[in-house]
Design a protein around this nucleic acid. Structure first.
Length: 604
DNA sequence: GCCGTTTTCGGCCCGACTGTTTTCAGTCG
């Protein structure tokens, strides 16, 4: 997505936050927030738009359009400068703490002069919040917990942010003369749900031009370390990026080494040692002579260790080595390793895994035929039905479900009339965009007792029903579990959306007996969503691995609320891969006929 | 600050929950 959009979005959002913190008009703040979201979600590159074009974006009026034009022209927004001078930037970080909003942040700053998260923690520890109006012991406790959540998440960045950054760095370094190969490695390549720092690997004969180009990137704020083989920088948004340049002949070994995980690498090195070899980022060598054996591609290195190539998303030391040994090196062309040592290895590695299994034929993004959870501006989406459908069709989907929010999510003001009118329009558009077929559905709200919004006979006429928890996050474990089990038992519900409802770094998942839910899903034929939104990624890999054992089916959905959201599918696929899923276990890889039959089958 | 077929002023998603209070403010979705 266009970088200026994100920049403007952040700027307007910051301005909205500051309006609230200074006690300004809440509606004015909301207007900025809305405009920020609309610009962030807009397909058009705002830096290419004039005032008129900007005002065509819903929620952007004359005042905001003028400010944006001014900012794009001069790099400044005068109003912002003024308010920034009055409010230290740290005060704004206070509202990033869950449970702490602008009103409380203002009190903390006005009465106690607290202008940073560490200062707030200190003030709580010193008991200085005790006589502040509206702050009790429970609030203190919640704030401390919120700070902890923030700290844990704050050191890591969301997968999409890291991906966008890595794409830019790789694109820039690919332009440097002498670049033979360039890609990202590390936890980003393994598609972990959050990323601590971004690792970039280049294959080239000379490293200096790359180090130089790297340090000169426009968003580099500081150089942390610089040398011949490695340079580390920090971006203006605080993310560390490491660049390693290796000789082209070492590419494969280096890519394995820098992709990790550490545990996976240790296992590989142990296997090398048992073969009287030595594995490093420069290659696989004879231990005694130091003579290089292989190092050019990942496949070669794995094969020489009697393994097929292992997909990066599996390299977490969760049994993938044992599974790969089970398969042997055949897939990658094979080697002439001695039979005896191979068999011994299998046994040894199998001991450490719970049960020997084969490497799965992993789900890939191209296996996904449709998206089964999406929104439009009929509720809280940013784009119209027509635009969402067009964009989905352009992405090559064969089918697409429109599932706007049901009435219990009251802020969306859904009614039967509205959803029926939408259904008519969906029927008209069905098959009209690159022959993509449309399903009309809804995202129901699972109430505190497990009931859902609309009556049974109204639900029957939807092609598909996703049901999700949007409220009452703090019920006790028993109640929460009963609630979800009741939803699983509802024959009208096909998919449980974002099953744990966690928001990465913001909100923990529900306290619920997930194994009971997984078992119920398997029993009733209710699919579990793998929500691809980078802030959710829910279920996550470990849950998927557990659910899979129960025999559950999954749906990898974007939950798109805007056109760019449709592009997030790959993050969900990454999570599914980390959960060792094959295409057949994911219902939206199925042909439409099979999917429809699954949706129609009355559940026991 | 934005918006409009009930409009150019006066609304602005609205209800629930939590923790603080003693009738309500702040936060969330």
């Amino acid at each position: 997505m266009a970088r200026p959009n994100k920049e403007i979005q952040a700027l307007l959002q910051e301005y909205a936050d500051l309006i609230l913190i200074t006690g300004g008009d809440a509606f004015r703040a909301r207007a900025y927030e809305k405009a920020a979201r609309a610009i962030g979600g807009s397909r058009a590159d705002v830096s290419q738009l004039d005032e008129k074009g900007l005002r065509d974006i819903p929620g952007v009026g004359k005042s905001i359009a003028d400010k944006v034009v001014e900012y794009l022209r001069t790099g400044e927004m005068p109003e912002m400068g003024e308010v920034r001078e009055r409010i230290p930037s740290g005060v704004r970080h206070l509202v990033e703490i869950p449970m702490l909003g602008p009103k409380k942040a203002k009190i903390l700053y006005d009465d106690l002069g607290i202008s940073s998260v560490p200062a707030l923690r200190e003030a709580i520890e010193q008991g200085r919040l005790r006589d502040l109006k509206g702050f009790g012991p429970k609030t203190e406790e919640n704030i401390l917990h919120g700070i902890e959540l923030l700290r844990v998440a704050g050191e890591r960045i969301p997968l999409n942010v890291a991906t966008e950054l890595a794409e830019e760095v790789v694109a820039a370094l690919n332009e440097v003369e002498g670049c033979e190969k360039c890609t990202w490695a590390g936890s980003l390549r393994r598609m972990r749900e959050t990323v601590g720092d971004v690792d970039i690997l280049v294959a080239a004969r000379r490293s200096e031009p790359f180090m130089e180009a790297f340090r000169a990137l426009p968003y580099v704020a500081e150089t942390i370390a610089q040398g011949e083989k490695k340079t580390s920088i920090r971006t203006s948004t605080g993310t560390q990026v490491d660049l390693r340049v290796v000789p082209p002949g070492s590419w494969g070994a280096a890519l394995i080494y820098f992709t990790g995980s550490k545990a996976h690498n240790i296992r590989l090195r142990e296997m090398a040692v048992r073969r009287r070899l030595k594995l490093s980022e420069y290659g696989l060598f004879h231990a005694k002579s130091g003579k290089k054996i292989v190092s050019e591609t990942e496949e070669e290195v794995y094969a020489r260790l009697d393994l097929p190539w292992i997909p990066p998303t599996l390299r977490e030391d969760r049994g993938e080595i044992a599974a790969a040994l089970h398969d042997g090196p055949r897939r990658s062309g094979g080697s002439r390793a001695s039979r005896g040592s191979h068999e011994a290895e299998k046994e040894k590695e199998s001991e450490s895994a719970d049960e020997p299994q084969q490497l799965p034929e992993l789900l890939t993004e191209s296996d996904i035929k449709g998206d089964l959870h999406t929104h439009t501006n009929l509720t809280d989406g940013l784009a119209s039905l027509e635009d969402m459908v067009d964009a989905a069709a352009r992405r090559g989907l064969l089918y697409y479900a429109v599932t706007d929010h049901a009435p219990e999510l009251r802020m969306q003001q859904m009614t039967e009339e509205k959803i029926l009118a939408q259904r008519e329009r969906v029927r008209e558009l069905d098959g009209k965009r690159r022959k993509m077929r449309l399903l009309h559905g809804t995202e129901l709200n699972i109430g505190p007792g497990g009931d859902v919004d609309w009556p049974e006979d109204f639900l029957r006429d939807f092609d598909i029903c996703v049901a999700s928890v949007h409220s009452h996050f703090n019920q006790n474990r028993d109640a929460q579990t009963r609630r979800l089990l009741r939803a699983c038992d509802n024959p009208r519900i096909h998919i449980i959306g974002h099953p744990t409802t966690r928001i990465i770094g913001k909100r923990e998942g529900l306290d619920v007996d997930l194994d009971a839910v997984f078992a119920a899903c398997a029993r009733t034929g209710t699919a579990l969503e793998i929500n691809a939104h980078p802030h959710r990624l829910d279920l996550h890999d470990e849950h998927i691995l557990r659910a899979k054992h129960h025999g559950v089916k999954f749906a990898v959905n974007t939950d798109a609320h805007s056109l760019p959201d449709l592009e997030c599918l790959g993050y969900g696929v990454g999570m599914a891969q980390r959960g060792w899923l094959t295409a057949d276990q994911v219902i939206n890889t199925w042909p439409l006929r099979r999917l429809r039959s699954f949706l129609r089958t009355p559940q026991p």
